[in-house]
C-alpha cells in the first residue's frame, strides 16, 4: 500500500508505521507538496530561504490564510462566501471614515469596521437560511453591492492610513512578521474551534447531513449564520491588516482575487467544496503553496503573461497529487 521503501538500516516495521502515521494525518499530502515546492525553489535560487524572502512569502500567505480560515468553516457547513474580498476592501475605509470624519479613537474604529463586516455576514446568512437563496447567489449579489458601496463612499480614491492609526500600525501588519503572526494565531484558534468544540462539531454535522443534524437537535441556521459572520469579520480584519502593510487604503484591494485564492487554498488544503469535511491547518498549507508558487515564480523571473498559465498548471498538479496521496492515505481503510 505504502510506496516508500524504507532504508535497510532501520527496522522495516518502524518506518512503515511512521509513514503510516504521517499519511493518516489529513494534511499530509499538502504538507508533502509544500516541502517539495520549497526544495525545488531553494534548489533553483539560493535566496529563497533568506529572511527577506520569507517575509515576502509571509505577506503572500497571511491574507489568504486568514480568509481561508473562515471560508473553511463556511465550506464545511455547506455554504460559500463570494463577497468576502469586497468586505476586505471596504473595512479599511470604514476605519478611515470613523477615525478621520467622526473622531473615533483608533481601536474602537477598527472594532467598528470589523463589526460592520460581521453585520454583512449576518445579512448574507439571513438571506441564505431564511429566504433560502443559495449562498452562491446571495454572496454574489453582496459582492457587487459592497463593491459599489466602497467605490461610492471612497469616490474610488486611494487614501492614506489615518495619522492617528500610525501608533498601532506595526502591530497591525506594518511590522515585517506582524501579519503572518496574526494569521498563525487565527488559524490555531479556528482549528481548535473546528476540531475541538461543539460549534465545530455542529458545523461538520450541518455540512455532512443537514437534515440529520437538524433532527439531532443542531440549530442548523444559527450555525450557518455564525459561520457567515466569522468569514466576513475575518475578511474585514484582513483588509485592515493589508492596508497597514501596503501603507495605503485602496479601493481595488482584495476583491474576487483574494476570495478565489482563499477558496483555492481551502480546497487545495483538503476541504470539500460540498461541505462536511475540512481542515484549517490544511488551508494554511494551501495558502503557503499558493504563496510559495507566486513568490517563487517572481524569484525565478517568470513573466506575467506566462505566470497564470504556470500557476494554473501548478495548482492542478498539486491537486492531482493531493487527491492521489489522499487515496493512498485512506486506501484499504475506508
Amino acid at each position: 500500500m505504502i510506496t516508500t521503501s524504507p532504508p535497510v538500516a532501520l527496522p522495516r516495521r518502524f518506518v512503515r508505521r511512521g509513514a503510516d502515521w504521517f499519511l493518516r494525518i489529513r494534511e499530509a499530502s499538502i504538507i508533502l507538496v509544500t516541502i517539495g515546492l520549497v526544495i525545488y525553489f531553494q534548489a533553483s535560487t539560493p535566496v529563497f530561504l533568506t529572511e527577506g524572502n520569507l517575509i515576502t512569502i509571509s505577506h503572500y500567505v497571511a491574507p489568504v490564510a486568514i480568509i481561508a480560515a473562515g471560508q473553511v468553516l463556511l465550506l464545511v457547513s455547506g455554504e460559500i462566501d463570494l463577497s468576502v474580498g469586497h468586505v476586505y476592501a471596504l473595512a479599511p475605509y470604514l476605519m478611515h471614515f470613523a477615525i478621520d470624519y467622526y473622531g473615533v479613537p483608533v481601536l474602537p474604529a477598527i472594532a467598528i469596521a470589523i463589526a460592520v463586516g460581521a453585520c454583512i455576514g449576518l445579512v448574507n446568512g439571513l438571506i441564505t437560511v431564511v429566504l433560502r437563496v443559495p449562498s452562491f447567489v446571495t454572496t454574489l449579489g453582496m459582492l457587487f453591492l459592497i463593491s459599489g458601496i466602497t467605490l461610492m463612499t471612497s469616490h474610488a480614491y486611494p487614501t492614506p492610513i489615518p495619522e492617528k492609526a500610525r501608533s498601532v500600525a506595526s502591530w497591525l501588519g506594518a511590522a515585517p512578521w506582524a501579519e503572518i503572526t496574526w494569521a498563525l494565531i487565527i488559524v490555531a484558534v479556528f482549528q481548535i474551534l473546528l476540531s475541538g468544540t461543539r460549534w465545530g462539531l455542529h458545523t461538520v454535522a450541518v455540512g455532512g447531513n443537514q437534515h440529520g443534524a437538524s433532527e439531532a437537535g443542531v440549530r442548523v441556521n444559527r450555525v450557518k449564520i455564525g459561520n457567515f459572520m466569522i468569514v466576513s469579520s475575518l475578511g474585514a480584519l484582513t483588509g485592515i491588516l493589508e492596508s497597514f502593510y501596503v501603507n495605503s487604503i485602496e479601493p481595488l484591494a482584495g476583491g474576487a482575487n483574494i476570495m478565489f485564492a482563499a477558496v483555492a487554498a481551502a480546497v487545495i488544503g483538503g476541504t470539500a467544496l460540498a461541505g462536511g469535511s475540512g481542515t484549517i491547518v490544511g488551508a494554511l498549507f494551501g495558502a503557503i503553496v499558493l504563496g510559495v508558487l507566486k513568490d517563487g515564480f517572481n524569484l525565478i523571473g517568470i513573466n506575467a503573461d506566462r505566470f497564470d498559465l504556470i500557476l494554473g498548471i501548478a495548482i492542478l498538479a498539486a491537486m492531482v497529487l493531493n487527491v492521489y496521496l489522499a487515496r493512498l492515505r485512506t486506501g484499504g481503510r475506508t
Binding site: 535560487t45 524572502n53 515576502t56 513568490d295 517572481n298
Partner: peptide, 10 residues
C-alpha cells in the same frame, strides 16, 4: 508591492 519585494529578495 509583493512583486517589488520579491525582486529585492531575488
Amino acid at each position: 508591492v509583493g512583486a517589488t519585494n520579491a525582486a529585492v529578495s531575488a
